[in-house]
């Protein structure tokens, strides 16, 4: 299991578009990728729940990656956050 904590810098937070892209990216991996905000945890591949989490600019989220391809998944997902969020 690998995890990282991230403070959202994007002004609009995890809105429909980034949520869609993130969800799509997460489906590439066999690892389970979870995101947690305020003790609520959802699976990143689940678009509606991810949007429902309502992650805004300034929020702190923790992303956890567990599974066979967790090394690559961790790298690509954390890169995605840095670049888009």
């Amino acid at each position: 299991m690998k995890s990282f904590t991230y403070v959202i810098k994007d002004e609009t937070g995890i809105h429909a578009r980034p949520a869609g892209l993130l969800s799509k990216l997460a489906k590439k991996f066999s690892s389970e990728i979870m995101i947690e905000k305020d003790k609520k945890t959802v699976n990143v591949t689940r678009l509606m729940m991810l949007m429902g989490l309502g992650v805004k600019c300034g929020d702190t989220v923790t992303v956890t990656v567990t599974g066979d391809d967790e090394e690559t998944a961790f790298e690509e997902i954390s890169e995605f956050f840095k670049r888009n969020l």
């Binding site: 429909a16 578009r17 949520a19 869609g20 799509k24 689940r46 678009l47 509606m48 729940m49």
Partner: peptide, 19 residues
């Protein structure tokens, strides 16, 4: 593209597991 993106999100909603 930016505005059309909403329809690709509709497609993803269609596939959403929880839904």
């Amino acid at each position: 593209e930016t505005n059309a993106e909403i329809f690709s999100i509709h497609m993803m909603m269609l596939e959403d597991e929880d839904y």
